[in-house]
C-alpha cells in the first residue's frame, strides 16, 4: 500500500525524464533551446554546493513568509468571520489587493527595501500567499451553522470556548485546502523576488546567473530543483493536513 504510493509516482517521474530525453534527442535540439536530463547531471555535479545553499535560502524564506501568512491570514479571517461589519469593510480592499499582479509589486518592493534582501523576499512570499488563508478562514467561520454555536452558547460557553472547541476545528479542512494553494504561491513569490533583486540569493538568483552566463543546462537544472522543492513543501502540508484534519477524509 505505502510502497505503491511511493513506487508509482517515482516510476511516473522516471518515465517523464526518459520521454524528455528521447524528445530532445529525436528533435536534435541544441542546449539553448531545450536541455535534456543527461545535460543536467553535469550541472548538478559542478554546482552541487551552490544548489544546497541556494536551495536552503529559498526554502527558509518561503517557509517564514508562509508562516507569517498563516498567522496574519488566520487573524484577518477570524475578524471577518466573526463580524459582519468587518467583512463588508475589508472584503473589497482584500480583493483589490489580491487582484494587483504581484509581478508588478515585486520590482517596487525590491526598490523600496533595497539591500534588505531577506526582508524583501519574505515580504513578497507573505503578500502573495495570505489571501487564500484569510478567505477560507472567514468563510469557514461565517458559514458555521447556528446550531453548532447554540449547543454551546445555551450552556453559557464563552466566545473563545466556541472558537476553540467548534469553530476552529471545523474550519481546518478549508484552512488546509487554502494552505495547499498558499504554499505554492509563497514559493512563486520567493523566486520572483530572487530573480528580480540585484545581488539576490536563492535558487531564483542561481537561475538568473545561469541566464546571464548563457548556461542553459544550469537554468534547466534550477527549474528541476524548484519543482523538487515545491513537491516537498506541498507534501509537508499534506502530511500536516492528514494529522490535524484527517477526520474530514471520508475515503478511508
Amino acid at each position: 500500500m505505502t510502497a505503491q504510493k511511493i513506487l508509482v509516482p517515482t516510476a511516473a517521474i522516471i518515465v517523464f525524464l526518459i520521454l524528455w530525453e528521447l524528445l530532445v534527442w529525436a528533435m536534435g535540439w541544441p542546449n539553448f533551446r531545450m536541455a535534456s536530463p543527461s545535460d543536467l547531471l553535469p550541472a548538478y555535479e559542478r554546482y552541487w554546493e551552490l544548489f544546497l545553499t541556494m536551495g536552503w535560502q529559498t526554502l527558509w524564506r518561503t517557509v517564514v513568509g508562509l508562516l507569517l501568512a498563516v498567522i496574519f491570514g488566520t487573524a484577518l479571517g477570524m475578524v471577518m468571520g466573526f463580524s459582519r461589519v468587518m467583512r463588508d469593510a475589508l472584503y473589497p480592499l482584500l480583493v483589490g489587493f489580491n487582484a494587483v499582479p504581484k509581478a508588478t509589486v515585486v520590482p517596487i518592493v525590491a526598490l523600496m527595501f533595497v539591500g534588505w534582501h531577506d526582508f524583501n523576499t519574505i515580504l513578497i512570499a507573505f503578500m502573495i500567499s495570505f489571501f487564500p488563508i484569510a478567505v477560507s478562514v472567514s468563510i469557514g467561520l461565517s458559514t458555521l451553522e447556528p446550531e453548532y454555536r447554540d449547543i454551546l452558547r445555551a450552556l453559557g460557553a464563552s466566545q473563545s470556548q466556541i472558537f476553540w472547541k467548534i469553530a476552529l476545528p471545523k474550519t481546518l479542512p478549508e484552512f488546509f485546502g487554502a494552505l495547499k494553494v498558499s504554499v505554492t504561491l509563497a514559493f512563486i513569490g520567493t523566486n520572483l523576488m530572487e530573480i528580480v533583486s540585484p545581488h539576490g540569493r536563492g535558487l531564483g538568483a542561481l537561475f538568473d546567473s545561469g541566464k546571464t552566463n548563457s548556461d542553459y543546462p544550469l537554468m534547466f537544472a534550477v527549474l528541476i530543483a524548484l519543482a523538487f522543492l515545491g513537491i516537498v513543501l506541498y507534501y509537508i502540508v499534506v502530511a500536516l493536513e492528514k494529522t490535524f484534519a484527517g477526520w474530514a477524509d471520508r475515503s478511508a
Binding site: E145, E147, Y148, D150, I151, A154, L155, G156, K165, I166, P169, K170, L172, A245, W247, A248
Partner: peptide, 15 residues
C-alpha cells in the same frame, strides 16, 4: 447551564 438542546440537525463534531 441547566438546559440541554437537540435539533433536527444532530450537529455532532466530526473530529
Amino acid at each position: 447551564a441547566n438546559v440541554g438542546m437537540a435539533f433536527q440537525n444532530p450537529v455532532l463534531l466530526e473530529w
